[in-house]
Nucleic acid binder design. Structure first.
Lengths: 211, 211
DNA sequence: CCGTTAAAGGAACTGCAGTTCCGATAAGCT
DNA sequence: AGCTTATCGGAACTGCAGTTCCTTTAACGG
């Protein structure tokens, strides 16, 4: 028996790359709601049947685009100072959201996630990975004694990003560098005050009680 | 010459109310992307021509729904304690976002805003009003000496909501009461630390310099 | 009350996103 | 190189969201 195996080789990969590139371009230009798969196919110089067959819906295409974006995320900084690291993270997020192409892409991806469960799943994994990548700088700060023990590292990282995404999606206020710096400083101030300490559980016996 | 005036009376108002109610129901059931204006018309027992004529697009309808929602916002609490007030605010937002109907509505409205400039305008006004409504409790805390002078009240209120919306739209983490309380406590801790003090400007001569 | 006309309603029409069908191309194996 | 078949591509088709056109209803002014 010959064949029967999947074929990730040359053509298939080339088509996927071209389509994802074209999908990004189209998303930036028309937004999530104005996305036409036939238009994406035309840009990618690919048959529209192919796009419909492999990705099916706009949300499905965006979900794949997201897994592609996840693979090329930047490494975190490690300056040895909590505030420096968090400021670097905040400014990275700020620059990403303000960038015309990247910002539009993130908006589109977040919108797509609210319309399709599988895209939502991909989005949440994406952010779980990113948060997990930056969490160590908080843990190191705890070890250095800069923060109270038991501080929830992921929660601190989330606190840095939250004000920026809030402005992008909800309030519409400008997202400048000062906003980013304030977000980082606020997260440090709250963490120092012990706001992000986790509850004492059997699996975390080393956590000290709150004052 | 008789007539020529607009007619906001009986029928028109009744149609608007029925359509907005139906639009809310449909949004909760199918989400923003799955919204069909003909379906809304059927639910409202109104001709679909009417819906298309008066609102035109899904985004336009959502924008009108938003101005309707803005008129029935709850008044803020005033306990005389900053942390109490902010916790009340955070829990109000938390309950709203977790509520199946309200949560879905807010998600849909935010999504619609990313697709249409006029809806975005309406959304930003909506939040500007809400933030302005809660800002006084921060100003009062400044007057009582609980917070440094020059603290940006709106920024503190935004800081309370941001982590909740971040979870709703971006990370997908659960939004429980503990999250709400933490958001309020973090905002207070950062404000106490002077993170939200505004820059000194000619229009704000009373602001003290940062330490 | 009654006339005027703003606004609603019904039904047929249209354009285009999404589907179906089948022939063409090239990846992978021997 | 040659065979098999996964995958791609073109073109015609279909369903339905959104439009058009004209008729009917009921606010508002006198």
């Amino acid at each position: 028996m010959v064949g029967g195996a999947i074929r990730p080789g040359g053509r298939t990969a080339r088509v996927r790359a071209a389509v994802l590139q074209a999908a990004g371009d189209a998303l930036v230009e028309h937004g999530f709601d104005g996305l036409d798969l036939a238009d994406v196919a035309r840009r990618a110089e690919v048959g529209k049947t192919t796009v419909y067959r492999r990705w099916g819906t706009v949300a499905g295409l965006v979900a794949d685009l997201l897994t592609d974006m996840a693979e090329q995320s930047l490494p975190r900084t490690d300056t040895g100072s909590l505030i420096e690291d968090l400021r670097a993270n905040a400014r990275l997020v700020q620059r990403t959201l303000v960038d015309p192409r990247q910002g539009a892409l993130f908006r589109a991806v977040i919108v797509a996630a609210t319309c399709d469960p599988r895209t939502a799943e991909a989005l949440h994994r994406f952010y779980a990975v990113r948060i997990g990548e930056w969490a160590p700088c908080v843990d190191q700060a705890v070890e250095r004694g800069e923060l109270p023990s038991g501080t929830d590292a992921a929660e601190v990282i989330r606190a840095v990003s939250a004000p920026l995404y809030y402005r992008l999606l909800v309030s519409g206020d400008p997202i400048d560098e000062a906003t980013a710096d304030r977000a980082a400083e606020a997260a440090v101030a709250a963490a120092r005050a012990g706001i992000y300490r986790m509850a004492i559980t059997p699996s975390n016996p080393d956590v000290l009680p709150r004052t």
